[in-house]
């Protein structure tokens, strides 16, 4: 599909992720989320540009920094906010939290807090699609970062996807840091995408701050997968604006010069400049979209705050589909 037909959706999604993360952080600092959160603002272009090509029948695997993936895949922000606040109305009834948001009805296999662990799940979803002859309508996308690029399970997954020719995309968000460790230190190669060559998979380096570039690269990879031609590896050079998690102090391990350089390339600002210059969307329309999303996120926060906590008996539910022993411990 031509990107012109998707521009409003793209803008909405970029803004939705940005505003969500800002509001989520504010609520976290206020003590309203119940644990650790990993904001993804700065990286919005990657999930947005990829998921623009996906439907609910496609599957994505996500990471601890997964809010952007969830939103781009169509999950409702109010349920996500409620989940982060540990509420019963959240996607996972308050059992998962920020690092385990999932919605199987939207093709979202779950955020995963073991670095790299969701990659084979996306490969498995692609296996299901191929097994059932549904590659055209259902592919897998594995999101992961530069940190996961050194995990063995990624390399095993790439090998499997290649030899089984599975409809899957390896989407590496190289945001330059794995926790506090820089990629230049931890990754043995300049471009992680080059690692794909070892598995006979095309590897492409993409400007992850430019949603147009992401959209184009993803279009090719999605087409290749749907046509049964196998996996593609995309490496997106991107940047997380905040630290590793909400209370991290990134100034201890990166410079403000570096941060500012990346912020100049901000995906939202540059999108706005471009669509206005090219007269694709006018300023008023952009503003009204912003306003709409602002309201949506305020409502999401309100929904989360006013939602009930999970009843205590749900502690023992959903461990198994069925199990004949008592799950309560001894006390």
């Amino acid at each position: 599909m031509k990107i012109e037909n998707k521009l409003e959706w793209i803008y909405e999604t970029l803004i939705r992720i940005r505003f969500f993360e800002e509001a989520m952080l504010e609520q976290t600092y206020k003590g309203n989320s119940m644990g650790v959160t990993h904001p993804s603002d700065g990286q919005e272009a990657v999930p947005t540009g990829i998921c623009a090509h996906l439907t609910e029948k496609d599957w994505i695997g996500s990471t601890h920094r997964g809010h952007g993936h969830c939103i781009a895949k169509g999950l409702e922000t109010k349920k996500m906010m409620a989940e982060i606040m540990g509420k019963f109305t959240g996607n996972c009834k308050g059992k998962g939290g920020s690092m385990h948001i999932a919605d199987f009805s939207k093709g979202m296999l779950g955020a995963n807090a073991i670095v790299g662990a969701s990659i084979p799940l996306a490969v498995g979803a692609a296996l299901t699609a191929k097994y059932q002859g549904k590659e055209k309508d259902s592919i897998g996308v594995a999101f992961f970062g530069d940190g996961a690029s050194s995990q063995g399970v990624l390399h095993e997954s790439m090998n499997l996807a290649s030899i089984w020719k599975l409809p899957v995309i390896f989407a590496c968000e190289n945001n330059q840091y794995a926790e506090a460790t820089p990629a230049w230190y931890a990754v043995s190669i300049e471009d992680i995408a080059d690692r794909a060559a070892s598995y006979n998979i095309p590897g492409v380096v993409v400007d992850g701050m430019d949603v147009f570039a992401v959209y184009d690269a993803a279009e090719q990879a999605v087409k290749r997968a749907r046509e049964g031609k196998g996996p593609t590896f995309l490496e997106f050079k991107t940047y997380r604006y905040h630290g590793h998690f909400h209370a991290d102090q990134p100034e201890k391990y990166r410079t403000s010069e570096e941060e500012n350089l990346w912020k100049k390339r901000d995906c939202i600002i540059n999108f706005e400049k471009r669509v206005i210059k090219q007269k694709l969307i006018n300023k008023n329309r952009l503003d009204s979209i912003k306003k709409k999303i602002q309201k949506e996120i305020e409502d999401a926060v309100e929904f989360g705050l006013s939602s009930p906590l999970p009843p205590e008996e749900t502690l023992y539910e959903d461990v198994y589909v069925n199990y004949s022993n008592d799950l309560r411990g001894f006390r």
């Binding site: 084979p120 799940l121 979803a125 692609a126 299901t128 897998g140 095993e156 499997l160």
Partner: peptide
């Protein structure tokens, strides 16, 4: 590659 194919099998189980 046990981690890879067990993981893929779990992904397949999650998707039908």
């Amino acid at each position: 590659s046990e981690a890879g194919f067990v993981g893929a099998a779990i992904g397949a189980a999650l998707t039908g």
